[in-house]
Write a protein that binds this DNA or RNA. Sequence first.
DNA 1: TCTTATAACTCTTATAGAAGACTTTGCGTT
DNA 2: AACGCAAAGTCTTCTATAAGAGTTATAAGA
Lengths: 247, 247
Amino acid sequence: MPETWGDRPRSGDGPLYRQVREALLREIAQGRHPVTEPLPSEQKLAARFGVAQGTVRRALDEMARENLVIRHQGRGTFVHAHGPDRDRFHFFHLLAADGERRLPTSRVLSMTQRRVTQTEALALRLSPQARVVEIKRVRDLMARRAVLELIILPDDLFPGLGDLNKTQLPNTLYQLYQDRFAVIVHRAVEKITAEAAGPDDVTHLGLDRGAPLLRIERIAQTLDGTPVELRISRCDTTHLAYFSDLL
Amino acid sequence: MPETWGDRPRSGDGPLYRQVREALLREIAQGRHPVTEPLPSEQKLAARFGVAQGTVRRALDEMARENLVIRHQGRGTFVHAHGPDRDRFHFFHLLAADGERRLPTSRVLSMTQRRVTQTEALALRLSPQARVVEIKRVRDLMARRAVLELIILPDDLFPGLGDLNKTQLPNTLYQLYQDRFAVIVHRAVEKITAEAAGPDDVTHLGLDRGAPLLRIERIAQTLDGTPVELRISRCDTTHLAYFSDLL
DNA sequence: TCTTATAACTCTTATAGAAGACTTTGCGTT
DNA sequence: AACGCAAAGTCTTCTATAAGAGTTATAAGA
């Protein structure tokens, strides 16, 4: 290991392609590079960073594998956003009993604004005084009441969301987050347990009191790790299942 | 697109690096390339397949990302096997309530040999006459009875397993599969539902009758997609949770 | 509407040096 | 002679660069 090296202006350390990756990551996280238009071409980026095109290519390929960007031959490289092209099942892991993947429909029960609870503040890394929007909705799968969802969103990240009419909420929320609030959900961590049905589950899901249900606690994050949504789903698993692929 | 080309003996189509990948995949699946010694070097493989080293490299890199092989600079590329180096949590997604990842201990209750049931035969793609080994065990997490496991294994894939003493079974079964039967589990698909505790759960997990529990139905496969294990875990989630990372 | 040009990504090959891991060699000591 | 140790050498993967042919999508022009 040499003591001194003047061979390259290495601002950081590690492989070059990784430095390029981090630089691009920062830019994307800062909201530059709108989802509607492509990133600069590999050539331009290479020139900008002072590296070879292959190095930029490697960084972009790696980011494409991580679903950070999506590459279209002939068109360009784009920040991978939620939209018609996005795999909708990436963040939806509930499978109908017949094994088919079907997207659910939603009906919003209520949408309110209030202060965070202690556990919510912890999960979303908010101050105890922060305000949140709480959305409660029922989701149907195959014309059957299946999931009771409670969604908690930090008010400061989604300004004006609480003023929306509850009928205006689309089925796929992540696209709304992106299009109206420039919040791109990139990752989600889920914690799954079994619980007994309470009064709410009885009324909204038609379950018997004490019946077993699946509780999914999800924390969704942007690509820089900021938690932006806490979602607690309570699922009747008599006709569906949560699936997970370990590969 | 040229009509004729004698330039290369392309057996299949698609990118070269992918053809190389498939060829290597076949070789590994066929049990050549023992896990103890490295694959041929990139140079040798390149010569063997008649492609450039970079092409082999791309194939191997892709396989490394998929956990098919593991690469050590200076040593070589190895078939990624279960062992001390393997991430043990890759196939174990139960998290203690404190958020820490801990491996469980196991106590085997019974090990029997019998004919498959219809559902088992379907899941494991066996003939209705096939014989299986059934292992039932309790797993403790943090000195607390947590999981009741039922493991179904095709007898023909694991010859002589049924004759083993039940005290001889190690805690990490996948390593046993690999070392004694040359079966490498590469992927697993899990289907998770909530259920009410039955008599077995009451006796072995100490749950109350009808208490909610998490049911995890796992089918483990080798890298060529052959299902080799059906495992049904019933978990008391009062002190633990199943976690899933969607990224 | 059809064709053509261009810009972008894709695939393959090639080369060269850096870095890690193992083996061999050589030397000195016991 | 046997042992220990360090240096040298070799093999392998890793990083970076470069160049050319191929594919795909968009835009301009006939």
